[in-house]
Design a protein around this nucleic acid. Structure first.
Lengths: 204, 204, 204, 204
DNA sequence: AATGAATGAGCTTTCATTCAT
DNA sequence: CATGAATGAAAGCTCATTCAT
């Protein structure tokens, strides 16, 4: 009945992935994970020090790449934004592309990071991400003006809504579809929708 | 010394509302609710059989109206859809209008229903809602054709993405803003965005 | 089967007292305490937030009085020590008297504080107490000299041994005897022994 | 690559010694012992059936010698006690000498036996030892009399206190000092203190 | 002989729910 | 009707011990 170490680690990770896909960090149960992994409760702790570390093992790599990529986009934007015709779409696409790359490697982990981390130390990731995108949007909005003026409250709210719905939209797609190609296509469609609107999208 | 029955029920509901606004169903605490309601733990159970029923008391009316309204939209659409120029936007607006109406009456309950019900039997509401909207969209797509043909998988997925992101977008706005006017404005902006695209929305 | 609140609190305290008399803080079991108290495990936590607080409820009053009394002795000593013939005995007796007073009120709790607190935040009490007595002894030793000189290592060690054995001796008596009168007599005998030696104590 | 059997046994014992010097029986960890011994957890159990037996392997020889020596003293005392002037000190010194001998050979094991055995089946050793010394003292007390009478309760208690505080005093010194010479000096000082009292000990 | 992964009972603590009063 | 003490199952985690290799 003794399995090799790496096998066990993998089945724990797999079971944890499934548990965290369906339960928030706080509600996920180590007992259920161990049962699903075919491992005793105590034995999990030989592989991962505690719940937090098991969660982190799943989610940290994605987290780091996510932040890194988004910051790259921001830097790129600061460097080359012209306010020209299609810049908005261009940069939205940059953001999405990086998420798609991440998705190809870590679809479920990204979902968990964005949707199930409440209560863990990654609980703020989604709103951090939104906040980051908001700063990008605000830069874009203000850079297109003569007056270096502040944005109005209404404009801020709109920027937040925009950033939030983009992030939520992508999260939704990640959550619903497992196949990389489908995700890529839907995210692109989603961005195009945001850019051109339903009117031009028509025949779906 | 006792409070009248209906008074108590109301203060329980009020306390539960606040608890569920800030905690997912699973994390909400009956103790905190009873404390906030100025009611003893045990006494709650004379008014509501258990946590689930208390949650349901808050959320069911909104749930039923939500479904009812969406079905009305569907019916209306079946009756009068012409495929004309602005029909898409028109019906999207119908869906949103009903949610805004609901929101005016039950803002908090709606947020809870859509964002806090994980773990309760309303955990599926969001996806139910999406599914319902998907059937509407599919009807629309197919009714515009000569051939009564099925949609392709790709089309189905796009419809699902569209429905899902609309719902998520509205949920997000509900979650973030408490003020009715702001919500109304942002939802309209959001729908307009979906219709015309960022390109036409420009300077925000 | 429902007991009144204060009854239960008392039986929990009584059970805890017995558990901590026979187990170090770390090895004491909340389950055993609750079983011995005739209370369910969970119910203990209505009365005491956790193990530490239950322990503290038993031990804190004694701790505070103990420190207070010993500091009083030290102050008194600083004020009036003359180096005269019987001062040593006199001050030893002061220390012991205060402990006897404490004992009359809290025999078992004092034992626990001094002998079972390892692992709790009172774990250092015994050595703190010894250290305190050492400083008193060192003051006494140096004040009897012309040269304000430091003590030698040997003298320090002897002072530590003396303080330690006094404290241990008292702890022992506390541990072994429950009756206040007996304790008082034995502690006095013990101090007299320290002062005059076995030779003069003879017939016991 | 394997270590020879006896080597392993020795390194286990050495590691166990260090663990038990710093942890009570109950708190000592087999994992830490095996890690420190450079031995796998499971392999310890080929050498010692369980924690208790490992503890016993360390502590039993000292225990037996300790009892044996004390019994020797008792026998010697029965044979030659005259009740003369310095007999008390003489026999106290005999008891201490044997402990010092033991200490020279097994300092750490003795400390463990006396101070760390709570929870093991040697948990009673200290009080056994005291009891043994009490019987010696009682013999001494009664042998000095014409009437072969029983001792009073008060006398018994005093004998117990005396025996107990002697034992505790020695334990304390063992616990606090590692250096053989220091221990020997302090124990002697301690005994002299018991014999002559502070009054004659003066300048420390 | 040795390994170290696995076991399983134990720990403290929390909480929805029940029930004697 | 109301109370709030009591229940008991579940949580995360630890550790002496066992056992397949």
């Amino acid at each position: 009945m003794q399995t090799l170490k790496e096998d066990v680690r993998q089945s724990i990770l797999r079971a944890a992935l499934n548990e965290f896909k369906t339960h928030d960090y706080m509600d996920a149960s180590m007992r259920r994970i161990s049962a699903a992994a075919g491992v005793t409760t105590g034995n999990i702790y030989r592989y991962y020090k505690n719940k937090e570390e098991l969660f982190e093992a799943l989610v940290r790599p994605v987290y780091e790449k996510l932040i890194e990529y988004v910051l790259d986009v921001k830097k790129e934007l600061d460097r080359s934004y012209t306010g020209g015709e299609n810049d908005g779409l261009k940069y939205l696409n940059m953001v999405e592309d990086t998420i798609i790359d991440l998705f190809d490697a870590y679809s479920a982990e990204l979902t968990i990071l964005l949707n199930r981390s409440a209560g863990s130390k990654y609980g703020q990731v989604k709103s951090d991400l939104v906040a980051l995108i908001v700063t990008i949007l605000e830069d874009v909005f203000t850079s297109g003006r003569e007056d270096g003026d502040k944005l109005t409250t209404l404009q801020r709210q709109s920027a937040q809504m925009l950033a939030g719905t983009v992030v939520e939209g992508v999260c939704l797609i990640l959550r619903e579809y497992e196949d990389g190609e489908t995700v890529k296509r839907l995210v692109n469609e989603f961005i195009f929708l945001y850019h051109k609107g339903l009117e031009h999208q028509c025949k779906l």
